[in-house]
């Protein structure tokens, strides 16, 4: 049976944990709002970019451009995007589990990995896969330049024919409490199909449709990578908020339970003391009567 002091100590420990989880929840909520806004703000650029790409792909010979050309090699590069930190429920585990499934479906000998986020790095460093490159510790100040750095590396791997396909695996932000792991092919690029009834505009090109396409494609890859990073960031904050809210609630329940235990133990002790006093008084009275 725990003593009163033990129980009191435990209550205090749970209370201070709860303070931390509550603070983390508030911080995640504030950051989540900002992350969501950023996704919305990036949308006009991204949409216009894929419209232009679709339009250009119709007017040029897309198979001529290396970033659009499909190759037969079947060698895959997988970009796995997790968070740098934990304490966000199954967020990291889900991505890693999905990536392991995808690795199993791929031809392992020709597989290369690119890990983004500390959690993915830590997981894959312990295994035997080749981690081709890693990007860590930038999520707090995520900017377009990080996406540009990532996409430059990926494009280079693709153009030097180190790999034939590049896929992204990351958490997509669905809602505050829902994240979904998605896999997308980043390279070669598949231009969005232009609806058949859409009017195809015949532009005047400067310098030429091919040259514009060549300048557009790498930027398209970058904005795709940027979107994936931002989705993952918003999803991470959402997951952390939910996880910390659950933790705060569990702490409350535990405090309630411990408080009941504490009160019970205190009452028991008082009863015992009373019995001792009554018993002692009774014994005195009896000895006096004798």
């Amino acid at each position: 049976m725990a003593t009163l002091r033990d129980i009191r100590r435990r209550i205090r420990a749970v209370q201070s944990t709860q303070k931390i989880t509550r603070a983390m929840k508030l911080v995640a909520a504030a950051k989540l709002r900002r992350a969501q806004e950023r996704i919305l703000e990036a949308r006009p650029y991204a949409h216009k970019m894929s419209d232009l790409l679709g339009n250009l792909a119709l007017r040029t010979a897309p198979e001529r451009h290396p970033l659009l050309a499909r190759r037969e090699g079947g060698r895959r590069q997988i970009v796995i995007i997790t968070a740098d930190k934990g304490l966000c429920g199954a967020f990291n585990t889900n991505v890693i589990r999905r990536s392991l499934e995808f690795i199993r479906q791929s031809e392992e000998a020709s597989l290369t990995l690119v890990v983004v986020g500390r959690k993915a790095r830590d997981h894959y460093r312990r295994r035997s896969w080749t981690v081709k490159s890693e990007m860590l510790g930038f999520f707090d100040r995520l900017a377009y330049s990080h996406a540009a750095e990532l996409s430059t590396r990926l494009i280079q791997d693709y153009l030097t024919e180190e790999t034939d396909e590049i896929h992204l695996i990351y958490n997509e932000f669905r809602s505050v409490s829902v994240q979904r792991v998605v896999r997308e092919q980043l390279l070669p690029i598949t231009p969005a199909a232009v609806p058949a009834d859409a009017a195809v505009v015949d532009y005047l090109y400067e310098p030429s449709a091919d040259a514009i396409l060549a300048a557009l494609l790498p930027r398209h890859v970058t904005i795709q990578a940027y979107r994936a990073l931002m989705e993952s960031l918003a999803a991470e904050y959402g997951a952390r908020m939910t996880a910390m809210e659950a933790a705060t609630k569990n702490a409350s329940e535990m405090i309630d339970l411990l408080t009941i235990q504490y009160n019970k133990a205190r009452q028991e002790r008082i009863t015992k003391e009373l019995l001792d006093i009554v018993g002692g008084a009774e014994a005195l009275r009896q000895s006096a009567e004798a």
């Binding site: 232009l52 250009l56 505009v201 015949d202 532009y203 005047l204 090109y205 400067e206 310098p207 449709a209 040259a211 514009i212 300048a215």
Partner: peptide
């Protein structure tokens, strides 16, 4: 600033795409 020099657009410009 188009790739081949500055250009101006007024209403009624032809469809045009440039770096």
């Amino acid at each position: 600033p188009g790739l081949q020099g500055y250009f101006g657009v007024l209403p009624g410009h032809v469809p045009f795409l440039t770096s």
